[in-house]
Design a protein around this nucleic acid. Structure first.
Lengths: 205, 205
DNA sequence: AAAAGTAATTAAACAGTGTTTAAAAAGTCT
DNA sequence: AGACTTTTTAAACACTGTTTAATTACTTTT
C-alpha cells in the first residue's frame, strides 16, 4: 500500500517538526517557559494536534532527552583511537565538558533538570541505558587504568561516580550560573581551568 | 508608640507564616508546582495578601534561599576548631555533603534550581555574599594547605572551584536522581562512598 | 462616642498555562 | 457519489502568577 506508506511518512514528518520546534523553543526560552501553544504556533498547527503525537509535554522532553544521549555518544566514538587508558580518561573528560559547554541547554535537559522520572527512565528501549552505557565505558576505562597500576586502593565504581561527579559538578555550576557571583572575573574560563587542575591531579594518581 | 510596634510585629509574623507555608510546600511539591494560591490557602488568607509582603513568587524563593545559606554557615562554624588545614578541608566536604543529603530540597533551592538571577543575586545585602564567603573560606583553607606543602603546582582559585564542583557534582547527581539508573544497587550509599574515594585522593596530594 | 483617615485584606479580573472533548474538515475507499 | 477513517481544530476546564479597585478593619482625631 503506497498510500499508507506516505501517511506513515507524513505522520513521522509532523512528529519531527514538533520535535524540531520544541527543541528550538526549549533551547530559546527553557522547558518551563515553552508552552504547547508556543510549539503549535511555530509549526502553524492547533495546540491539540500535539497530543496526537505525544502523550504530554514530558514525552516531548523525553524524546529530546534521548537525542541528546545519541549526540554525546557520537562524540565519544573518537575515544576508541586513544590507546593509553589515562589519556582516554582525560579525553573523555574533555569531550564531556566540551559537549556540555557547547550544548548547555541540552546538557541541562539530560543531567540537571528534574524530569518526571517515570517517563524518562521507565521505558524499556531507553537511551538512559545508553547513558548508562557511557557510564560503564567510563568505568571500564578506569578499570583499564587500574590494571596499568593507577588508582591503587580505589573502588572502581565509586571512583567512576566521583570522576563523573567532578566534571558534572563543574559544568552544572556553570550552567546554573553559580560561579558568576563567586568568581566574578573568570566566569567563562573557570570550567576549563578547573578541568586543567583536575588533569594535573589525575596525572599523579 | 506601642501600637505601631505591635503592628510591625504582626506584619513580621504574617511574613514569617508565609515563608513557613511556602517552604513546607516547596519541599513537599517543589517550587514550580507550588502556587501562590496554595500558599494563601495554607495560611488561610487570600492570594493577594502575599503581594504585600513579597514582590513576586521569586522573592519568596529568594528569602528561603538566604535562610539556607545561614543554615549551612551555621554548620560550618565547627570547622574553626579543626587546626590541620587538610583535615579542615575534608571536614568541610563532609559537612557540605551531610547538609545536602539531609536537606536535599533546600540544597536544590540553593545550588541547583535555575532561579531568576536578578532577584537572587542583585540585591546588596545578599546572602550569596555569605555563600561567596563560604567559597572564600574554602579557598583560604586550600591556601593554608598549599602553605603546608600540599597541592603544589596548582592554582588555588581553580582548584577551589574543582573541589567545590566535586562535592556539588556528587550530591546534585544524587538529588536529581541520575544515579538510580546507572548505579541501581548502591543508590543511597554512592555519595558517601564517592566522598571516601575523594578523601583517599586528597590524602595523596 | 462619632467621624475621618489609614492600613490591611479581599474579590474579581486578566492573560496565560497543560490537557481533554466533541465537532468539523480532509482524505481514502467502496 | 456516498460511506467510512483519519486528521485537525475550536472550545472548554481547571489551573497558574499577578494587578486592580473595592471593602473591611483598625487607629487617630475631633
Amino acid at each position: 500500500m503506497g498510500i499508507s506508506d506516505r501517511k506513515e511518512r507524513e505522520r513521522e514528518e509532523l512528529r519531527d517538526r514538533i520535535l524540531v520546534a520544541a527543541k528550538a523553543l526549549f533551547l530559546e526560552k527553557g522547558f518551563e517557559k515553552t508552552s504547547i501553544r508556543n510549539i503549535a504556533d511555530r509549526i502553524e498547527y492547533s495546540p491539540g494536534i500535539i497530543y496526537h503525537y505525544f502523550r504530554d509535554k514530558n514525552e516531548i522532553f523525553h524524546a529530546l532527552h534521548q537525542g541528546g544521549f545519541l549526540q554525546l555518544m557520537e562524540r565519544m566514538k573518537v575515544l576508541t583511537s586513544v590507546r593509553n587508558p589515562m589519556e582516554r580518561l582525560k579525553a573523555m573528560g574533555s569531550i564531556y565538558v566540551e559537549f556540555a559547554l557547547e550544548n548547555p541547554d541540552m546538557y541541562d535537559l539530560m543531567f540537571i533538570k528534574e524530569a518526571p522520572i517515570d517517563h524518562v527512565f521507565n521505558s524499556e528501549h531507553d537511551q538512559w541505558k545508553e547513558g548508562g552505557g557511557t557510564f560503564n565505558y567510563l568505568r571500564s576505562t578506569i578499570d583499564d587504568c587500574i590494571r596499568e597500576g593507577h588508582f591503587s586502593g580505589h573502588d572502581s565504581e565509586a571512583l567512576s561516580y566521583l570522576i563523573w561527579s567532578t566534571v558534572h559538578g563543574m559544568v552544572s555550576l556553570s550552567i546554573r550560573k553559580r560561579c558568576e557571583v563567586v568568581l566574578p572575573i573568570r566566569q567563562d574560563k573557570i570550567v576549563v581551568d578547573g578541568l586543567e587542575e583536575f588533569f594535573k591531579i589525575l596525572d599523579r594518581l
